[in-house]
Design a binder for these strands. Structure first.
Length: 835
RNA sequence: GCGGGCGUGGUGGAAUUGGUAGACACGCCGGCUUUAGGUGCCGGUGCUCGUAAGAGCGUGGGGGUUCAAGUCCCUCCGCCCGCACCA
């Protein structure tokens, strides 16, 4: 084959990319703008925005290849698709590099952004670049600050002193969500507890709605919903007040088991509980308590929660009164009680709680059964393990007037009893904490707040936004924000009284930046408002959101919270940002996770340069079901490249041959079979892409079509009708592979049909050609396959059975036996049961 | 410990939801093309026995339901991911 006809991905891809760029093919107008077509239904296809660091990796490639396939598919199915791109550009990696090199984080960040953009364009991803944004640009973070002020106005942003998690390596506080097993989510360093005054977003106010609105989602992976549910950790129960008479102190506790109140035999406080010192003061246990609390403070969360750890603790020498029976029960301090959950104190019911049971065992405390199975004997029911069942099959015992009640009813009645006497009430408790957004770091969005000696905490007025991040000399954190050193910037005037004031020097968690970017895309150049309401009303919600599972809790929950808060402010009309979520699996190499330290990373750039973007993109989609991972193998890339090259050659061949138009009534033989195969592939690819996003089987269908065309082409080329069939098969294959390999597809299709594929509607399978006149039917005897018969598709059952019995392989197995049952599965098989 | 997912050839993975297990691809084997290597094209490739026709076995193990099970039920084993003293 001559050189000019050889498949040259670099040339083909450059050609189409230039056309798309020059013609701004993927830009879509907003309602009211020129060219907007109100007749087309919209579709918002979005992939999680990248953090630009160095250059894109295979995870990015997979993410955007999947999203782009969907975007292309939907466009050609008549939808108006918005498919934007941006950069999550504030963050620690750039800042840490700045500390080492002294170069402004902006420089490295924008260098990375340029590289990401360059490669995305080289991949041929169909992005509306007119909506591009970077969260570190003042034009963007101005509105992040504006949204902060809106939350502040509503009381959803507040400043409070609280025990917080401090990462000593990154020298900043972290949100609860960013601490995993007591370690910093980013760098793995053990976190420390500190008491600091910090800014929080009141996400807990939305806990119930974050749970309820899962119903409003069309399709989210069940496990992501479960993870968020667990994270929010809603539990219903009661707050019960235990009183320490000696010191005149009330100790509320949270319990999900008010039905077991009569079984409380002791009481435990967390070591961090503020009353511990006071309680122990002056008792014989004072020193022991102090030692225990100090030791607990030194222990990491990881150690504390270690599995199978023996329960430890010390008595306080004080007593509280159980409100339901007036019993005085002893108080203890133990680190199995967590200050962060509930009230930091618990009533201990060893008979019905695993942990309390262990503690009672270790300290020789009484264990009293108060719940038993309905039919168990009250006098002899004493299991040697905690009995934790509490359905209506269980009843209360040893519980005064409540004895004999079914557990759920007992629960209700005891709460009522407490409420009547002001000793407790029904409550709901959550594991979710408010979102701590302050960060003592430089490369983030400044918090638009000023502190004035006279006026206190004053929000920066909207017309003074953005509060721009100043340039500084030294980025190194020193336990306070590096911004604190920028004296000229910190010193300001109070917007309220005009007096001297100081700026807030912390910056926001970068998750704030990414909690609303999907809204800014919709009106990215608006310099009067964060977005115009009609633009957002038209495009929202995101119809398909694609990204990694690692964001199942953090980003996705924060973005949901923002959306709900914005809806409440009437800035937005939808309760949920992402109607459908697709989480892609991670790509491994030779079975192992890719990591820089192992040196087994794949650089998409190398493959794009060697095989072309089309091959590389198609390969990542062909790896396997996209929700699962996939293993990168160089041989696999070559396989896909071979396939695309075959399609290319087929295109060259049919383009230069004379072909007759396909007339489905006149087709026969191989030509008919090939055209049928094409329609089969249309049907299969369409279903796979639109229903299950099983892109790998859609690609496999196109491969089958191309293989079939290759097998048949040499004989078909002998007539114009046959050539027409090959030509149709080739054009169809190009059309179907377009979402994955758009450049090659366009080139091949143009050569054959003279049209631009993105302007050609997605093909429709002809139902007549999906039906076959003759089918092969499996014949079984006793469920074992004994042969196959070719029969007309509409052959009646009796005839089928007759043919089946005549089949030689069948006869061999039924001779001398009696057929006792005959099963015909239309279009599939015949099974004869012989005895 | 709790919750979720998964287990199919040498490998990645298919299987229209109870109806031909192994599509497609990699790898491997053979043939053709080529001066040769590579490329390309065609064919073969689950395992066992058999020259073959064919037969038996086969979807982590065991048991069950069914004319029929990768698919449904019970049970056991293994791997992965979340959560993990949350009262």
């Amino acid at each position: 084959m001559s050189d000019e006809r050889r498949y040259d991905p670099a040339a083909v891809e450059a050609r189409w990319q230039r056309i798309w760029e020059e013609e701004r093919t993927w830009e879509v107008p907003n309602p009211g703008q020129p060219g907007f077509d109100p007749s087309k239904p919209k579709s918002y296809v979005l992939e999680m925005l990248p953090y630009p660091s160095g250059e894109p990796h295979v995870g990015h490639l997979k993410n955007y290849a999947i999203g782009d396939a969907v975007a292309h598919f939907r466009r050609r199915n008549g939808l108006q698709v918005i498919h934007p791109m941006g950069y999550d550009a504030f963050g620690l990696p750039a800042e840490n590099a700045a500390i080492r090199t002294g170069e402004h984080p902006r420089v490295a960040t924008f260098a990375s952004i340029d590289e990401f953009r360059r490669q995305f364009k080289q991949w041929g991803i169909s992005i509306d670049w007119s909506r591009e944004l970077a969260t570190c640009e003042p034009e963007y973070y101005r509105w992040t600050q504006w949204l902060f002020l809106k939350l502040y106005e509503r009381g959803l942003a507040y400043r409070a002193e609280a025990p917080v998690q401090w990462c000593p390596k990154d020298a900043t506080v972290l949100a609860n969500e960013q601490v995993i097993d007591g370690r910093c989510e980013r760098c793995g360093t053990l976190v420390e507890q500190r008491r600091l005054e910090q800014w929080f977003f009141r996400i807990t106010e939305y806990a119930d709605r974050l749970l309820e609105d899962f119903d409003a989602l069309e399709s989210w992976p069940e496990h992501v919903i479960t993870m968020q549910r667990n994270w929010i950790g809603r539990s219903e129960g009661a707050e019960v007040i235990f009183r320490c008479e000696e010191l005149d102190l009330d100790f509320p506790v949270f319990t999900t088991r008010p039905d077991t109140l009569f079984g409380a035999t002791f009481f435990v406080l967390a070591p961090e509980h503020p009353a511990v010192e006071k309680l122990a003061a002056g008792t014989e246990h004072e020193q022991a308590v102090r030692d225990y609390v100090n030791e607990a403070g030194r222990r990491s969360a990881e150690e504390r929660g270690a599995e199978d750890r023996e329960k430890t603790g010390v008595p306080l020498g004080r007593y509280v009164t159980n409100p339901v029976n007036g019993e005085r029960i002893p108080m203890f301090v133990s680190d199995y009680v967590l200050m962060e959950y509930g009230t930091g104190a618990i009533m201990a019911v060893p008979a019905h709680d695993e942990r309390d049971f262990d503690f009672a065992r270790a300290f020789g405390l009484p264990i009293r059964q108060v719940v038993r199975p309905r039919d168990a004997d009250p006098d002899s029911f004493s299991p040697d393990e905690p009995f934790v069942e509490h359905s209506s099959d269980e009843v209360l015992m040893n519980s005064g007037e409540f004895s004999g009640l079914p557990a759920p009813e007992g629960k209700r009645k005891i709460i009522e009893w407490l409420e009547e006497r002001g000793l407790g009430k029904a409550t709901v408790n959550y594991r979710l904490r408010d979102w701590l957004i302050s960060r003592q770091r430089y490369w983030g969005c400044p918090i638009p707040i000023v502190y004035c000696d006279d006026c206190g905490t004053v929000p920066v007025p909207e017309d003074q936004l953005p509060v721009e991040l100043p340039d500084i000399e030294d980025y190194a954190p020193k336990g306070r924000s590096p911004l604190a050193a920028a004296e000229d910037w910190v010193a300001t005037t109070c917007p309220r009284c005009g007096g001297a004031a100081r700026r807030e020097t912390d910056t926001m968690d970068t998750f704030v930046d990414s909690s609303w970017y999907f809204l800014r895309y919709l009106d990215a150049r608006n310099d009067e408002r964060p977005w115009a309401r009609d633009a957002v009303d038209h495009w929202m919600p995101v119809d398909l959101y694609i990204g990694g599972v690692e964001h199942a809790i953090l980003h996705l929950m924060y973005a949901r919270f923002f959306t709900k808060a914005l809806q409440d402010m009437d800035l937005l009309g939808v309760p949920e940002p992402f109607a459908n979520l697709f989480t892609q699996g991670m790509i491994t190499r030779d079975g192992a996770k890719m990591s820089k330290s192992k040196g087994n990373t794949v650089s998409p750039r190398e493959y794009v340069e060697r095989y072309g973007a089309d091959t590389t993109r198609t390969f990542v989609c062909f790896l396997g079901p996209p929700e699962r991972g996939g293993d990168w193998k160089d041989e696999g890339v070559e396989g896909v490249h071979r396939f695309l090259t075959r399609l290319w050659r087929l295109g060259q061949e049919v383009a230069e041959r004379e072909a007759a138009a396909v007339d489905k009534g006149a087709l026969e033989g191989d030509a008919l079979e090939l055209v049928r195969k094409a329609h089969w592939a249309i049907d299969k690819a369409t279903r796979d892409i639109s229903q299950s996003l099983h892109l790998h089987t859609a690609i496999a269908a196109v491969m089958e079509l191309v293989n079939e065309a290759y097998r048949a082409k040499d004989s078909l080329y002998s007539s114009p009708e046959g050539t027409g069939a090959v030509r149709f098969a080739t054009a169809t294959a190009a059309s179907l592979i377009y979402p994955f390999a758009p450049h090659l597809a366009c080139e091949v299709y143009e050569a054959i049909e003279g049209e631009r594929l993105w302007e050609v509607p997605w093909p429709k399978a002809d139902p007549d050609l999906l039906q076959r006149e003759e089918i092969s039917l499996v014949v079984q005897v006793n469920g074992k396959r004994r042969g196959e018969i070719q029969v007309p598709a509409d052959m009646p059952e009796g005839e089928l059975l007759r043919l089946a019995r005549e089949h030689e392989g069948v006869r061999r197995h039924i001779d001398g036996k009696q057929v006792v049952k005959e099963i015909v599965v239309p279009g599939r098989l015949v099974n004869l049961v012989a005895r």
